[in-house]
């Protein structure tokens, strides 16, 4: 069903020893939305995304991803997710097409009438622009090519939710542009949760932005709303998302 609630996080808290790295984090995302988690280093972005991926337990709060608590998600639930971490270095001796075709076989049993799985390896390779490298060993790929492969692996199962943790770190402008085109082409079926430091990227891709600082969400809204929100409350009337972000993070640090 379209516009169905896909991510629902309520009062999420994560505590290590006596330090709260996440406090009362609450947000939702509907089907097809692209939600960007923006924030400085150590703000809790990766912790949040890892809890939603089911890779990390939480201290308190309710979390639902595709109607299921990630702490107890089964393999069918897992088949509906795509995960792209900050950096992967695995399967260096495999060839690009070989690995994509191999990983795709795990998703085949989860194909449904509405959703054919997996994505055909050759077609996917073309989509992410790696046709020239299809038969190359993964360890010989450049940083940008490796990243595109990571994204291809993340979407090989045609995920309904795609988690991307700082996906464009180290990209040159062309690779970044191509990556943005790729994400925008995923269609309305895929909900995307992306973390980034790059404000320009957030402004381009986000339907909504959550600004995380010190483990709390300090602002949320569309890029335009965030810019307006700050402009209305400050005499210096910031003109861009970057100004708004700087003011928000500075304000949270005080």
């Amino acid at each position: 069903m379209k516009n169905e609630m896909v991510l629902a996080v309520d009062g999420l808290r994560m505590r290590y020893g006596t330090t709260d790295v996440l406090q009362d984090v609450t947000f939702q995302a509907r089907q097809g939305e692209t939600l960007v988690l923006l924030g400085p280093n150590g703000a809790g972005k990766t912790t949040t995304i890892e809890i939603l991926e089911g890779f990390r337990s939480r201290s308190a709060g309710d979390v639902s991803v595709l109607g299921c608590d990630p702490a107890s998600g089964d393999e069918r639930w897992r088949s509906r997710l795509g995960v792209v971490l900050q950096s992967w270095r695995d399967h260096g001796n495999w060839r690009v097409q070989e690995l994509l075709a191999h990983l795709g076989t795990y998703y085949a049993p989860y194909a449904t009438a509405e959703m054919s799985r997996p994505w055909d390896a050759a077609e996917l390779i073309e989509t992410v622009g790696l046709t020239g490298q299809a038969r190359q060993k993964i360890k010989t790929l450049s940083g940008g090519q490796r990243r595109r492969l990571d994204v291809a692996i993340g979407i090989v199962g045609r995920p309904e939710v795609l988690f991307l943790d700082e996906p464009t770190v180290g990209f040159d402008p062309v690779a970044r542009y191509e990556f943005h085109q790729l994400l925008q082409g995923l269609g309305e079926r895929t909900t995307v949760l992306l973390t980034t430091h790059d404000l320009d990227e957030a402004g381009k891709l986000a339907d909504r932005i959550l600004v995380l600082a010190g483990g709390r969400i300090i602002a949320a809204g569309t890029p335009a709303e965030l810019t307006r929100q700050i402009a209305g409350s400050d005499e210096s009337r910031p003109a861009s998302l970057e100004d708004a972000y700087r003011q928000l993070v500075r304000g949270a640090a005080l």
């Binding site: 069918r76 997710l81 992967w88 695995d90 260096g92 795990y106 989860y110 692996i153 199962g157």
Partner: peptide, 19 residues
């Protein structure tokens, strides 16, 4: 495999650890 993330890749794949 644990060090280079192969194991995590398996964990991120449905029934990947079994395979």
């Amino acid at each position: 495999d644990r060090e280079d993330g192969t194991l995590l890749r398996a964990k991120a794949t449905p029934n990947g650890m079994l395979g």
